[in-house]
């Protein structure tokens, strides 16, 4: 398969970026998107050109490092997959593919397709944890947790913190990310204890870092590679408002 790639190139955070067009040829249909980018970079290095910088790590959809806005979609046009699990067979032979970095004021571009997502780390540091050691895995049924609660907590915990939600949201809101973290802990007895403090602290940090306000468009859940539901945003709203009204 052959593709024309329109890629955002930006030397560093302070430089002005622009789109540059490249062509890749003889790409096997089972090549992953990141492998295709590797092939492009290999060609560029052999030509003596600067390779395209992009984030990646585990390449099995669990680390949250890969990003890229591909043809208008975070992580590409495929539903519920990260860029590393997107394959070139999902594109048409000869297609022009536009690749952009996440666009959000809280995620400034560092270089080419790499953005600074440390704002999410700061939100986590504000409250996305349990303050006491809860020990290793306990015997089954030692702490009764209903199946529905365990499932819902695990669904929220599937968030890999890639930033697709804020990058997709027209308001640059990080609500889905914060909601997933708050929800995954709030549904378990170990995390429930600090539920109120966590919701307040994480929302305060999210606001302080300049993320936008949720207007319930649902675009975040549509583009989330882990299909995190906005039902968690409703829970975050509930947790936050209940905590504030008790203050």
């Amino acid at each position: 398969m052959n593709f024309k790639l329109k890629i955002w190139r930006q030397k560093d955070a302070k430089s002005k970026g622009e789109f540059k067009t490249y062509e890749v040829t003889n790409i096997a249909s089972d090549t992953s998107f990141l492998e295709m980018m590797d092939i492009l970079n290999n060609d560029l290095v052999h030509k003596g050109e600067e390779p395209v910088a992009f984030d990646h790590d585990c390449r099995e959809g669990i680390c949250g490092m890969c990003s890229m806005h591909i043809n208008g979609h975070a992580h590409g046009p495929e539903t519920a997959v990260t860029t590393c699990q997107l394959y070139m067979r999902k594109f048409k032979d000869g297609e022009t593919i536009t690749i952009e970095p996440w666009r959000s004021a809280a995620f400034p571009v560092i270089k080419d397709l790499v953005v600074d997502r440390s704002a999410y780390d700061k939100i986590l540091q504000a409250g996305g944890f349990i303050s006491v050691r809860t020990g290793s895995v306990v015997d089954a049924n030692c702490i009764p947790i209903s199946n529905a609660d365990a499932e819902e907590s695990m669904d929220a915990a599937a968030c890999v913190g890639c930033g697709a939600c804020a990058a997709t949201c027209k308001n640059g809101s990080a609500m889905l990310f914060v909601a997933a973290r708050v929800s995954s802990l709030a549904k378990l007895p170990q995390g429930r204890v600090e539920g109120a403090r966590r919701a307040k602290a994480m929302v305060a940090k999210m606001d302080e870092l300049g993320f936008g306000n949720c207007t319930n468009t649902g675009a975040c859940q549509a583009e989330c590679p882990k299909s995190i539901s906005i039902t968690h945003i409703a829970r975050l709203n509930r947790e936050f408002l209940a905590a504030k009204l008790k203050d």
């Binding site: 329109k6 970026g17 789109f19 806005h69 043809n71 208008g72 979609h73 539903t79 536009t98 952009e100 666009r103 959000s104 004021a105 809280a106 571009v109 997709t168 027209k170 308001n171 640059g172 809101s173 300049g210 993320f211 936008g212 306000n213 207007t215 468009t217 649902g218 675009a219 549509a222 583009e223």
Partner: peptide
């Protein structure tokens, strides 16, 4: 106003309507 500021100056070149978004 806050949301536009949060979205940033640089906008996407390609945009789509996400599935299920009215």
């Amino acid at each position: 106003i806050q949301n536009r500021k949060a979205r940033g100056q640089q906008r996407y070149a390609v945009t789509v309507t996400e599935k299920g978004v009215s």
